[in-house]
């Protein structure tokens, strides 16, 4: 029997075109032995939810640098719930002001990683999340 490989969707919702952070994370998670489904720029919440469903991912990682996280994150969460992926956690990276952390966590964001977070920390966080959420 094969060991469980974590599958992570990395997506950029909204209109900002800065995908370097998302690519750095994708690469780091690859090097941590995870399978990263990279969907690229300008994804709508519905596109993200549909990809998460088809790919049966364990975690959805969003990268937002536009400042629109308070609008986009709830929409992605709703879209995921609409396709019955209530149990798939969202993690968030990008430029997120600290005063938004608590409201975002209240919306069900499992983890928020700002600039300067070590990739090891993100890797360990996802591994914990996946093993505690094993389906």
């Amino acid at each position: 029997m094969t060991t469980r490989v974590a599958r992570v969707l990395i997506a950029k919702p909204g209109l900002d075109g800065h995908d370097r952070g998302a690519k750095v994370i994708a690469r780091a998670l690859r090097d941590a032995g995870m399978e990263v489904i990279y969907t690229g720029l300008r994804q709508t919440p519905e596109m993200i939810a549909e990809a998460a469903l088809q790919e049966d991912v364990d975690v959805v990682g969003l990268s937002i640098l536009s400042g629109a996280h308070m609008t986009l994150v709830p929409r992605v969460r709703e879209a995921l719930n609409a396709v019955e992926l209530n149990d798939v956690p969202i993690i968030l990276g990008g430029i997120i002001p600290e005063e938004d952390y608590e409201p975002l966590k209240a919306l069900g964001v499992a983890g928020i990683f700002g600039p300067g977070t070590s990739t090891e920390h993100i890797r360990d966080f996802i591994n914990n999340l996946v093993s505690s959420n094993a389906r």
Binding site: R27, D31, E35, V36, I37, Y38, T39, G40
Partner: peptide
């Protein structure tokens, strides 16, 4: 690990 990036060029099919 792996990076699965084929969906990037299939975004027309989304939805």
């Amino acid at each position: 690990g792996a990076i699965l990036g084929d969906r990037i060029r299939m975004r027309d099919l989304s939805g």
